[in-house]
Design a protein around this nucleic acid. Structure first.
Lengths: 302, 302
DNA sequence: GAGGGGCATAAGGATACCTTATACCCTCGT
DNA sequence: ACGAGGGTATAAGGTATCCTTATGCCCCTC
């Protein structure tokens, strides 16, 4: 659902943080290269938006109220998340011109790469990273062709001819909304019961759906689509609004499960696990940044 | 430091998420109660800002590119953080008119309360919560007077006459920037060495400073201020830019340490711990929401 | 090949925002 | 007590942004 309330904009929150850091609206304005009245108006508008008194202007210099201090603190997490987004988009924008060139499947790029980049940045802040996304087959090709230095793919099988190390593990899980009868269920859902239940699914051809279909086909069963949607986000929205259960990557629902918007239901008789592997060309020598990244994500280098 | 790059605004990111959910710009526009051209222009402007192609408009309906899907995913964390901020500010705005009235010290309100509220909302979404901030003494008074239902205070001592349970633990830690010589130090810093080192500090009278001064005074030592600043945020900014070490609440530096902007240096000979306690009036009966909250944060009720 | 759904463009108008200039206020020093 | 200085709010004017309605174009489907 769309954001309901009026949302404070990040520039104003950043300005408030600068007031906390620098001790006056004037200096905060200077740090943001804007005029003092502009900063003053933005801050007043922020106070109107939130309906709170953030600054105490009674004594000459503007000082943060306790409320203002709390808002600064709470906005810190927003900046961190936005920083991650900017880090990710910057690496996508770099398009192969970085000193460390990564390739990754969509799922890995979305859920894992930003964290690794953040971690890498703390030890090597100046390394320009580029990121390209594709399916596992494409990523392997790019690694072989030397178009990327390191690739990250998911899948049960090893990639031959390439250096390889398991980084993480991802499995498909059954999720429902919290008010669904299965949300409180402790007894696992079996393959037969799952096959007989209409599910919210991706359209035919998606990797996630293929894994599920293959696992069920191994038992002589098939899937029963309830509706077919075009994106993981759309599926999550449908499940959260109570349309029905779905099978999704655990990585994709991690945040939603943590926030309580979705509930994982245990399953049995189904092998829906796959590893996430780092791959690299054996022949080429890995750069310093690549080695730092790989050891950082837990890969033992030769 | 202020945000350098141009920051995408949350409404546009939210719009992009709606496109992913609903499958077309038109429907996303309708969900946001704006005209279709307005949504189209916002999305195009978002693509310009990020320098990336987020939507594939070639086939009639607009579909997200893999890049667009990644941006949606990354922005999810931004919405979560902003939701926490809005939850916190809403409870401050409610000012005692909520069905569950909380009081908390500044530190607890800033770092812990939003998480508890989020947790509470997943099991009781409709409870209106109000939050008031003050020092530990004020909070205890409010609880006694029945102005708030539950209070959260920090400090080593019990509050008598009130129901009480330890919720969490907070201690003061020594932090430096990652390039400081102490950042790699494994041997703990002793009280004498700490007293001889100029520190970035809060001004006289702050609770954090008092705890430190009392701990050192017990050993016949005193503090050596390097500079004195007015807020925790200002101190963190000074430490991060390499001005010198500081003693800060572990809660206050949790995110910065996780992100690698600050490093905790081990200390010894110093008792800088304090508990965070929930307090409530023994005489009054606790409401359902209050009991849910307290058991949720790990307090055993009578 | 005709119809329909969906997106982009154009024109016009309202709104929000920023900058410079200036007045007010508080604090501090003598 | 009084003046100087730093800091913030207000006013006026101009610009850029953003939205809405109207309309054209394109792709897909039947």
């Amino acid at each position: 659902m769309p954001l309901a309330e009026p949302v404070p904009d990040l520039i104003s929150l950043d300005l408030l943080r600068s007031v906390a850091d620098l001790g006056s609206i004037r200096r905060a304005a200077a740090a943001h290269t804007m005029s003092q009245p502009a900063a003053s108006m933005r801050l007043r508008s922020l106070e109107r938006t939130l309906g709170l008194e953030l600054l105490d202007r009674s004594s000459g210099r503007a000082r943060l109220t306790p409320t203002g201090s709390a808002v600064v603190q709470w906005s810190e997490a927003v900046f961190t998340a936005m920083g991650t987004l900017l880090l990710g988009t910057a690496s996508l924008r770099t398009e192969g011109r970085g000193r460390l060139r990564l390739g990754a499947s969509l799922t890995v790029a979305e859920y894992l790469v930003p964290g690794w980049l953040e971690q890498l940045r703390t030890v090597a802040p100046d390394v320009r990273v580029s990121l390209e996304m594709g399916n596992s087959h494409q990523v392997a090709e790019w690694v072989e062709a030397g178009r990327v230095d390191v690739g990250f793919v998911e899948g049960p099988e090893d990639v031959d001819g390439l250096g390889c190390g398991v980084v993480d593990r991802d499995d498909l899980v059954l999720v429902v909304d919290p008010s669904h009868p299965w949300a409180r269920r402790r007894r696992p859902v079996g393959a037969r019961e799952l096959a007989g239940t209409p599910l919210v699914m991706r359209e035919v051809g998606s990797g996630t759906r293929e894994v599920l279909e293959r696992a069920l086909a191994g038992l002589g069963l098939g899937v029963t689509p309830l509706v077919e949607l075009g994106s993981t986000t759309a599926i999550k929205a449908a499940v959260e609004s109570g349309h029905g259960p779905a099978i999704l990557s655990r990585l994709a629902v991690r945040i939603d499960v943590a926030d309580g918007r979705l509930v994982v239901v245990p399953t049995e008789d189904l092998d829906l696990e796959r590893s996430i592997r780092a791959i690299w060309a054996r022949g080429r020598r890995l750069g310093r940044a690549a080695r730092t990244l790989l050891t950082g994500v837990g890969v033992a280098l030769p």
